[in-house]
Simulated scan of single mutants.
Amino acid sequence: MYGQVRAVIDKAPIAMIKVSVYRDRTLLDKTYTNDEGRYSVEVPKGAVVTVRFDTHHSLTNAEDWHPSVVANVIADDESPLDRLLLKSGHGVDPESAVDALSGYLFAAEWEDGAYARTAESRLSRLKQTGEVLQEIQRKLQEYFTKLSDTASNT
């Protein structure tokens, strides 16, 4: 599986985005995008997978981009899986906002306190227009704040 990750606003390639591929609850493979935003991961052809695009808390871009997740992808070596990510703090269309929230919801299942700190910060800068999306965003912020606080106290 391969593709390119770029910015929603100007379509510029994004380097150092972590691309993780899961089947069921198992991480199959992960990699990072190169300077051109390109990635390639090894996945059994025909497998139905979930692909997550996100920053990593230890990198300099940890708070720059909102996550994205694509579920029920059939792994294929012939068709690229390209993705557009939303930059933190930028205005956005509702589709990109929902995509970012979905990425955070997925991350809530997998991540620890170190991730929670950057997620909390990025979520605070996500601009939502609808009340329902604002409520989901608020609940995710509360969850990641609590996770971050718990990690800090241990």
Rank of each mutant, 00 (worst) to 15 (best):
W110V: 11
S40T: 07
D99I: 02
A75F: 06
S96A: 13
A7K: 14
T154Y: 10
M1S: 14
N61T: 13
G89M: 13
P80W: 09
K127N: 07
K87D: 10
S88H: 04
A108D: 02
I136P: 01
S96L: 04
E63I: 15
V70I: 02
L105K: 09
Q128Y: 04
D10W: 02
V92G: 12
I17E: 06
S124V: 01
I17D: 02
L105W: 03
Q134R: 12
G130S: 14
R138F: 04
L59C: 08
I9P: 00
A15M: 10
H66M: 04
H90P: 07
E135N: 15
L123R: 01
L59P: 00
G37F: 13
N153C: 00
D93P: 03
D93A: 08
V92W: 02
A7P: 07
E42G: 12
L101Q: 05
G89C: 07
E135S: 12
G3E: 05
G91Y: 00
D29K: 01
P80D: 11
K139L: 13
V49Y: 02
K18I: 09
Q141A: 10
T129G: 03
K139Y: 04
Y22S: 03
V51D: 01
K30F: 15
Y2K: 12
S68P: 02
K127P: 00
V92P: 04
E42N: 11
R117T: 11
L28P: 07
N34M: 07
Q134G: 13
Y32R: 07
K87I: 12
A108R: 01
K87L: 13
V98G: 13
V5K: 00
G37S: 10
Q134H: 10
P80T: 11
A62D: 11
A108I: 02
L133D: 11
R6D: 03
K18H: 12
Y2N: 15
V48M: 02
S88C: 06
R138T: 06
P44R: 09
D10R: 08
A62R: 15
S152H: 13
